[in-house]
């Protein structure tokens, strides 16, 4: 098996999910400079809602694709409503408060949503019912499943759709204008409240689909899944340049690749027995084909954070971003 190609395929799959979730962070941040911590939880709720619907329909005679579609169709509006309520009830009243206030509110909302989900769905993960015949295709020594293909294609479609919306429609231009300068956009007749609410709603809708994709890729959805997924997607948004829509897409894909390749190779790279010159005590450990692996694939979740920290230290504006540090 070609490990490199396989990891690239896996990385592209998770990366495209990260990208879609990252869009939610970056659009909101672009307009009101708020890290919407609760976005990860919205994504999680999307997955939970869809999984509930899919599970309850799994026994019916409907075709599998229709069942999955029904799940997504339920999750998207549900998340959009949550996104709207979040903005309306929690963030809007704090729009002129000191910087720390909305951030703390966002953390609070994230905890509240997560535990409400725990109340609604319980502690046990929901499993994706075996309704889809997940076919696996061989590509140049690696394997790609139909679910992976579907995730990548759907993500690309959504990213394309959002780009069209943001760059080609009137309302999209209003969003971009507000991201440049929300006050000036307001003077030009853009209704800032509507734009801000729209970024939350669109982000939540995309997030819902991303949640379903992520859940179906790993086969489960769990009330805690939003936390690390959200954190990674946020890292992706920062990597691409927060506030920048193309950046979020690029950052997501890159982060997925880094994570997959890192996880795939870190064990080999930190296996001290594979390094030349093992001596003494270490040599004894390595005898008879032994291994001395410092960091194995169980460090998977570390890569995103390390990437985040490295980006912030060396290129805080991200790959495609312009805005740097605090405004004077």
């Amino acid at each position: 098996m070609d490990i490199l190609l396989q990891q690239i395929i896996n990385g592209l799959t998770t990366g495209s999910v990260y990208a879609v979730v990252a869009l939610g962070y970056t659009m909101v941040y672009g307009v009101i400079q708020l890290i919407n911590f609760a976005h990860g939880e919205v994504v999680m709720i999307g997955a939970m809602v869809a999984f509930s619907i899919i599970t309850s329909l799994a026994g019916s005679s409907l075709p599998p694709l229709v069942i999955v579609l029904a799940g997504v169709m339920a999750a998207v509006p549900a998340c959009m409503v949550i996104g709207y309520l979040l903005e309306r009830a929690a963030y809007r009243p704090l729009r002129h408060a000191p910087r720390l206030a909305p951030l703390i509110t966002a953390i609070g909302m994230s905890i509240v949503l997560q535990h409400l989900a725990l109340l609604a769905w319980g502690r046990n993960p929901l499993a994706f019912p075996q309704i889809i015949d997940n076919r696996v295709f061989a590509v140049g020594g690696a394997a790609i499943s139909s679910v992976q293909i579907a995730i990548i294609l759907l993500s690309l479609t959504m990213m394309g759709g959002l780009s069209w919306f943001v760059y080609r429609t009137r309302f999209g231009i209003a969003i971009r204008a507000s991201a440049e300068n929300v006050h000036v956009a307001g003077l030009m007749g853009v209704n800032a409240d509507r734009v801000i609410a729209a970024t939350f709603v669109i982000g939540a809708g995309l997030g819902a689909v991303a949640g379903v994709m992520y859940g179906s890729y790993y086969g489960i959805a769990h009330y805690t899944m939003g936390f690390s997924l959200g954190l990674k997607a946020f890292s992706a948004a920062v990597l691409g340049g927060i506030g920048n829509i193309a950046g979020a897409m690029l950052g997501g894909i890159l982060l997925g690749l880094v994570e997959a390749l890192g996880t795939g190779y870190v064990g080999d790279l930190t296996n001290l027995c594979a390094w030349p010159g093992a001596q003494g005590w270490l040599a004894a450990q390595c005898a008879d084909g032994g291994h001395f692996v410092l960091f194995g694939s169980n460090y998977q979740d570390v890569f995103a954070f390390l990437m985040l920290i490295l980006v912030l230290v060396f290129r805080p504006s991200g790959l495609l971003g312009e805005r740097v540090s605090e405004r004077a």
Binding site: Q33, I35, V302, L308, L312
Partner: peptide, 16 residues
């Protein structure tokens, strides 16, 4: 860096 970046980096650090 800006304060909100600090929040998320510390969050990541706690996880690490």
């Amino acid at each position: 860096l800006r304060g909100d970046y600090l929040a998320i980096v510390t969050l990541g650090f706690g996880e690490i």
